[in-house]
């Protein structure tokens, strides 16, 4: 399905996650963050860049992995994205929602 994000037609799945990362850019990220009631700071962008890099390198994401990344600890990750950090951050980053339960 498609959704208009930041004035463009973007391919997304039923949950609103981008299905084609090449359509992502910072404006799309900003618009998705706004939908999640998050104002992006430089810290948010650092974490988003790390998540995108992990996805590119096909590293499965979990809270534990993020916590051990050295980029952000679990507590801060929750402070940056309070309503379910991995779920929210991956959506803003334009990458798939992680399937791990841990």
């Amino acid at each position: 399905m498609e959704k208009i994000i930041s004035g463009k037609n973007i391919a997304v799945n039923e949950e609103g996650y981008l299905t084609d990362f090449s359509q992502w850019n910072k404006e799309i990220g900003e618009a998705l963050a706004k939908e999640a009631n998050i104002t992006l700071t430089p810290r948010h962008w650092e974490v988003l860049a790390y998540l995108q890099e992990s996805h590119k390198n096909e590293i499965p994401l979990s809270i534990r992995k993020v916590g051990k990344s050295g980029v952000v600890d679990i507590k801060e990750f929750y402070e940056l994205f309070p309503q379910g950090p991995l779920k929210t951050a991956t959506k803003i980053a334009g990458i798939p929602k992680p399937v791990s339960c841990i």
């Binding site: 916590g67 507590k75 841990i102």
Partner: peptide, 15 residues
């Protein structure tokens, strides 16, 4: 990639 009990408690409290 499942943490041990102690680390899991750390993850839970941090979350």
């Amino acid at each position: 990639d499942m943490p041990d009990v102690h680390e899991f408690l750390d993850i839970l409290t941090a979350s």
